[in-house]
């Protein structure tokens, strides 16, 4: 029996918002440590890695490891039926072929349950090597989303270059070119407004703007986003999910011809 109860159904709604652009379906791997998801988009250019720790749930029970193949379009439709302040419970019998979502209104006067068929998805897991990144940038998530949106109007690629002074985002195309430079903030009163750069060596990499924009669908989950870069390895874009976990997006760089 698997049962996970979350008081804030908005977390699960936002997680679906954050992944449904990139993935049509994904396997939720549930164990007693929590729920993990790892899936590449169809083009194998980007990967989503999500982790929700069991201790972040109000109630979590997983008698035996269970992998639930979810159609994310259907799951999104079901989660749209939950109000933000509803309590959501996901449950499934061992080796079940359906999963049930129960939404309870705060005053318990309305309880809804939705049963969704599970899919048999082939489990293709990638080994992601632990990496010491040359540059790790932390900036306000809203700022990053704004930069990706503004620059994607100029070209299909964004060049991110990182030095100890700060980070520069550039794009060029038919209408012209654009550069956005963010300097390291010196003393900001609020942590989530800071721009910080931890640099071992300068890095400049090129990425497809449409994937970056897809990643920023996770902006509602966290005030801060972390970008990790090293020469010629995939970019990591990480958003924390409250105290319960994180979403990490990996994006293969574009190689200059």
């Amino acid at each position: 029996m698997f049962e996970a109860r979350l008081v804030q159904s908005s977390i699960l709604k936002k997680v679906l918002e954050a992944i449904k652009d990139l993935l049509n379906e994904a396997t939720f791997d549930c164990s007693d440590s929590g729920i993990q998801l790892q899936a590449m988009d169809n083009s194998h250019v980007s990967l989503v890695s999500m982790n929700l720790r069991s201790d972040g749930f109000d109630k979590y029970r997983c008698d035996r490891n269970i992998s639930m193949g979810m159609n994310l379009g259907s799951m999104t439709k079901i989660l749209k039926c939950a109000a933000n302040e509803d309590v959501v419970t996901m449950k499934a019998q061992d080796n079940a072929d359906t999963v049930t979502f129960v939404f309870e209104s705060p005053n318990q006067e309305k309880v809804s349950d939705y049963e969704m068929k599970l899919m048999n998805l082939d489990q293709e897991h990638l080994g992601i090597p632990e990496t010491e990144y040359a540059c790790v940038v932390r900036l306000p998530a809203g700022e990053f989303a704004r930069i990706c949106r503004d620059l994607s109007q100029f070209g299909e690629s964004v060049v991110i270059s990182c030095t100890k002074e700060g980070v520069k985002f550039s794009s060029a195309g038919d209408i012209g070119s654009a550069n956005i430079k963010l300097a390291q903030t010196s003393n900001v009163d609020k942590e989530e407004l800071a721009v910080t750069v931890e640099m071992q060596e300068p890095v400049t990499l090129t990425f497809a703007s449409r994937y970056l924009n897809s990643f920023t669908k996770a902006t509602s989950l966290s005030n801060v986003v972390q970008l990790s870069m090293s020469p010629d390895v995939p970019l990591v874009v990480e958003y924390r999910i409250g105290e319960i976990g994180h979403i990490r997006y990996y994006l293969a760089p574009k190689i200059e011809d």
Binding site: M40, S43, H44, V45, S46, L47, E124, H125, L126, G127, I128, P129, S157, T206, A208, V233, P234, Y250, A252, P253, K254, I255, E256, D257
Partner: peptide, 14 residues
């Protein structure tokens, strides 16, 4: 122009 890489050339399938 720049060619889009794929993750398969960076991460191995377990």
């Amino acid at each position: 122009g720049a060619t889009q890489g794929r993750l398969d050339s960076f991460f191995k399938v377990l």
